[in-house]
């Protein structure tokens, strides 16, 4: 993909990020809105966005730490041991 295409894709992404949160806020504000939420946090607009971001970083950091200190070994580990 060319650089221009990448830039376009990123613009689309920014718009999507923005729209997804705004739409949720608007839905929550609308007078016809009835909450179907099973959990408290589902009432908070933008919860999924925050969870997605934090979850992503947590998964990377936690598993990289686990791997670095414990689970990752050189490729011929099983031949050597």
């Amino acid at each position: 993909m060319g650089k221009m295409e990448m830039k376009h894709l990123f613009w689309i992404l920014y718009v999507c990020l923005f729209v997804s949160v705004v739409v949720e806020v608007l839905i929550h504000l609308s007078p016809h809105f009835h909450s179907h939420a099973a959990f408290v946090w589902q009432e908070i607009p933008g919860f999924s966005a925050v969870y997605g971001f934090v979850g992503c970083i947590l998964i990377i950091v936690v598993s990289k730490t686990l791997g670095h200190h414990w689970l990752q070994k050189e490729e011929d580990y099983y031949e050597k041991h």
């Binding site: 992404l13 999507c16 990020l17 997804s20 949160v21 949720e24 933008g46 999924s48 966005a49 925050v50 969870y51 997605g52 971001f53 934090v54 979850g55 992503c56 970083i57 990377i60 950091v61 990289k64 791997g67 414990w70 689970l71 990752q72 070994k73 050189e74 490729e75 580990y77 099983y78």
Partner: peptide, 27 residues
């Protein structure tokens, strides 16, 4: 679902340097 996945992308883009493969195996 859209929010969850789109913001995952943001997290990925920030930390993409950490995700490069390393020549290791995992126990």
């Amino acid at each position: 679902m859209s929010q969850l996945l789109l913001f995952t992308f943001v997290g990925f883009w920030l930390l993409r340097g950490m995700l490069h493969g390393t020549p290791t195996i995992t126990l």
